[in-house]
Design a protein around this nucleic acid. Structure first.
Length: 557
DNA sequence: AGGCGATGAAGCC
DNA sequence: TGGCTTCCCTCGCC
């Protein structure tokens, strides 16, 4: 990470001997070092002590002491000696001086975090569901525990079916399934490029690069014409794209005068369509909501301040059944509910408070009675309008998704097919050691009880998958990981041969020809896993490959 | 293979 | 409020 290297790039190096202070401060870990050094005498000579001190004391010490260079290893996180944080093999060791990286509470590290080891993964029980008497407790524990849940088990698309590697030239920022044609997936990236992919035919794909000039934050199909897609971008425009031709027109432009500096450059993030009212809604990085007529494509009215002035509105969602309700979320740590009939500056009817930035907020897809939010405090929150209230979430689920730079923000998404409105998918930031490889799974969580239903991953995909979308009709998951897109299905059986067909994993971008020819060489190989997939080439992961039987190739995704 | 940087928010003064 | 520094598992390029 850049800040780490920056912090250590110009250390003051003190050349000193065994000063009194040094000896007295030596800890048990220093003793370990001594033991190690005893074995390898040559290392002792090369040791360099890295200390942050003033120039004066540095020169004074160097004058006084005979030259003996010693290197004391310090933790790269807290810069203190005695322990080290970082990857050991494929397992990340936390700095014990910092709060837990997962739940943010002090006193333990991620390794021993109760939210990581509990069977009910990361669950904070709903406040209203707590037992109030011992009798109730006995009932809950001994009777209710054995009552099976009355709902069908979830179908999890957990097998990698096909993918396009390096499809986009920058990281994926959004994905949408076509509302009527089953195998069409559209995608947007950080550069503003727009992709259309027929994952049924795998090879049929197109990327259009001249529509937006920077991040394509959100896309929506036009309800009255599913051959048209709207796109909201950080270039401040909403585009109207024809799916067949890739030809687009600009519906809205918030920066008609071009670049006048960062304080005036408007970027559009959240977007949704209210088909009952024929409205296209979008919101910007200064807290304002914009509306346009979805039929005439004309902008309607003035911008309305819906979040803290100057703060980004990260998402918008219209209620699936009640056209008068709108949900928004933003950098002001709130998700807010609005009545479209009365909407004006700061007129929200509910404000759902969070501890950090809210990445997304969605009504449950069928009844809209629940709200799911993803916040950068590493918690998913469920707000239940029937069995709870809007003052506090009816459930919070601790889940690792708090990385806020260099990755597309994580957004927990409902499964639109789940009638119980409880299955949710979200990518995981923190990695786990799976057979010696550090992987970042895509998590399926049952928000009715907080349990982790499934962790979806493939040993060949070592990058984080922040963008995930479940198909509106089929048991299909689309995931966006870095510049690549993957399709997952629930069964291997009949798909097995197809899945192991290398031609179902397309390689694009730089080195495409070379890679393709290599694939052709490999195509005769029965053991697909051995030679057609690869893994990361970083130091930690390379060592892991020795242990991993599957990942033995130099090639990577 | 290692350094670099694109980036965004929090927290401090 | 604004400027500056810091920040724990990125990722791809040079």
């Amino acid at each position: 990470m850049a800040p780490q290297t920056r912090g250590l790039s110009f250390p003051k190096i003190v050349i000193e001997g065994d000063s009194d202070s040094e000896q007295s401060s030596s800890s048990s870990e220093d003793e370990d070092e001594v033991q190690n050094d005893a074995g390898e005498e040559s290392e002792q000579v090369d040791e360099v002590e890295v200390v942050e001190e003033s120039e004066a004391s540095t020169s004074a010490k160097s004058r006084r002491q005979p030259i003996s260079i010693s290197l004391k290893k310090v933790c790269k996180v807290c810069k203190k000696p005695g322990h080290e944080a970082g990857f050991r093999g494929a397992t990340y060791i936390d700095c014990p001086m910092k709060p837990c990286f997962l739940c943010k509470m002090p006193g333990h590290t991620t390794m021993s975090c109760p939210h990581r080891v509990a069977t009910e993964y990361g669950v904070i029980p709903a406040p209203l569901k707590n037992t109030h008497s011992s009798l109730e407790y006995v009932f809950q524990r001994q009777v209710r525990h054995h009552i099976p849940t009355i709902k069908p088990s979830f179908v999890i698309p957990k097998y990698l079916n096909c993918g396009v590697v390096r499809y986009h030239s920058r990281r994926i920022t959004c994905l949408e399934f076509h509302p009527t044609i089953n195998n069409i997936l559209i995608s947007g990236d950080k550069k503003g490029q727009f992709g259309v992919w027929d994952f049924g035919k795998v090879h049929e794909k197109a990327v259009y690069g001249n529509i937006h000039s920077c991040i394509l934050n959100n896309m929506k199909f036009k309800p009255s014409n599913d051959g048209t897609v709207y796109g909201a971008s950080s270039d401040g425009t909403i585009s109207c794209i024809d799916l067949e031709t890739g030809i687009s027109s600009t519906l809205m432009n918030l920066n008609p005068d071009g670049w006048q500096g960062p304080s005036s450059w408007r970027m559009l993030y959240g977007m949704d369509i209210n088909s009952d009212r024929g409205l296209l809604l979008s919101a910007d990085n200064f807290g304002f909501l914009y509306m346009a007529d979805a039929r005439s494509n004309n902008v309607i009215g003035k911008p309305i301040l819906i979040h803290k002035k100057g703060s980004k509105v990260t998402g918008l969602h219209c209620h699936p059944l009640q056209p008068d309700l709108l949900l928004s979320c933003g950098n002001d740590h709130f998700a807010r509910i609005w009545d479209m009939r009365l909407i004006e500056d700061r007129s929200s009817i509910y404000n759902l408070s969070h501890k950090r930035v809210v990445n997304s907020a969605y009504f449950s897809p069928q009844t809209g009675s629940k709200i799911l939010t993803t916040s950068q405090d590493n918690r998913l929150s469920i707000w239940d309008s029937i069995f709870g209230d809007m003052d506090s979430p009816s459930r919070e689920i601790v889940h690792s998704h708090d990385f806020n730079r260099h990755l597309t923000p994580f957004r927990a998404e409902w499964d639109p097919k789940d009638n119980s409105e409880s299955l949710v998918v979200i990518g995981r930031y923190i990695s786990e050691n799976y057979n010696g490889t550090a992987l970042h799974p895509i998590d399926f969580i049952d928000v009715s009880n907080g349990q982790l239903v499934a962790e979806v991953m493939d040993p060949n995909i070592t990058t984080i998958s922040p963008v995930n979308k479940l198909h509106p009709r089929d048991d299909v998951l689309a995931s966006g990981s870095s510049r690549s897109i993957f399709i997952w299905r629930p069964k291997e059986n009949s798909e097995l041969k197809r899945q192991r067909d290398p031609s179902r994993i397309l390689l694009c971008g730089k080195g495409e020809k070379e890679r393709k020819s290599k694939f052709e060489d490999d195509s005769g190989d029965d053991d697909f896993g051995k030679d057609t997939y690869g893994s990361k080439s970083s130091k930690t992961k390379k060592t892991n490959l020795k242990k991993s039987k599957v990942c033995s190739s130099k090639r990577k995704y």
